[in-house]
Computed example of a mutant assay.
Amino acid sequence: MQMYPLEMEGNSNPKTTNKPKYSKFTQQELPACKPLLTPEIVIAAFALIGALFVPIGLASLHASRQVVELVHRYDASCVPVDDKVGFIQNSRTDKTCTVTMTVPKYMKSPIHVYYLIDGFYQNHRRYVRSRSDKQLRYKSAAHLTSDCVPEGETADHAPIVPCGLVAWSLFNDTYTVRVNGVVTQVNKKDIAWKSDKNNKFGKNIYPSNFQKGRLIGGATLNESIPLSEQEDLIVWMRTAALPTFRKLYGRIEKDINANDNVTVVIQNNYNTYSFGGSKALVLSTASWIGGKNNFIGMAYLTIGGLCLSLAMGFLVLYMVKRRNFADPSNLSWNR
């Protein structure tokens, strides 16, 4: 028997439905801005973007070109033999190396000292995961080393702090800087992010059993200094996203004049030869935009120039072939 709508009103057990409760959100009836892109608005928008981006690009490019940067690759020149891997792995060889650079322009302090490594994939999944963040932060988590294999425990099953391949491979080249023959202090304080020091590394966590195994990966740590103050380690533990990266080694708090000779005595300890990598020393000043980076300025100039070109092209087209907006006579079926 067919049931009509009026009869359904009196039905005490109506059929259930999946119809949602009415609201302006579910029915897409909320107030919305629906701009009409007239030729005038499009031309003005492109012109405004271009007028903003071009000055930003010029300022960024100028700031980048004001940065003075010296880069000296030393991994090849600091090993005098053909068997570079054997040389670097031999603990009895003298690995002292001296490089000299001439400063082309005045360098205003602070002058940042970086080490640059190429061909080191710190973003490898197994490498990135080989660490224990809880162990670095909490004293009660020293035993949490399951993610740190093969550098989680010693041969007698004592936990390594800090554990994992990231800490184990800590960079251990050292630099002694002389300017015109005078030793210049490299300040290694405050080279790590403040948030990392305060939130990721505990003030009561001290290294233990670190680099005590048969195979030494990199630098050792002072067991009397808490991890929150071992800034070389903190800088290294912030892994890089790309295989070519630079990390801050320290700062020179002294101006260096043009044509000064900078001599750097390097202890070439870090093994990049086994995986075909390279090392370089970088001295660089900084500007309001940071270090030397022409890409940002060029990107702004390119986008700004393109927008200005489009604005000019649309303006010429609009002036030559002007037509009324929303004129139905321009529809194809009305022509």
Rank of each mutant, 00 (worst) to 15 (best):
T17G: 08
N18H: 03
N18P: 10
K19C: 13
K19N: 14
Y22A: 01
Y22L: 06
Y22E: 12
S23C: 05
S23I: 05
S23Q: 02
K24P: 03
F25K: 13
F25L: 14
F25Q: 12
F25T: 10
T26A: 14
Q27D: 11
Q27H: 12
E29G: 01
E29R: 00
E29H: 07
E29N: 11
L30M: 13
A32K: 09
C33L: 15
C33E: 09
C33Q: 13
K34W: 11
K34G: 03
K34Q: 05
K34F: 11
L37G: 10
T38G: 12
E40P: 09
E40L: 08
I41M: 13
I41A: 15
V42K: 13
I43Q: 00
A44C: 07
A44H: 10
A45F: 15
A47C: 02
A47W: 13
L48H: 11
L48K: 05
I49V: 13
G50W: 07
A51L: 10
A51C: 09
L52G: 12
F53E: 06
I56Y: 10
I56P: 04
G57L: 06
L58R: 07
S60V: 07
L61E: 00
S64K: 08
S64F: 00
S64E: 01
R65N: 15
R65D: 10
R65L: 03
Q66H: 02
V67W: 01
V68G: 10
E69Q: 05
E69P: 08
E69V: 09
L70A: 00
L70Q: 01
V71K: 07
H72C: 05
H72E: 14
H72V: 03
R73V: 02
Y74T: 00
D75L: 04
A76P: 05
A76S: 14
S77Q: 03
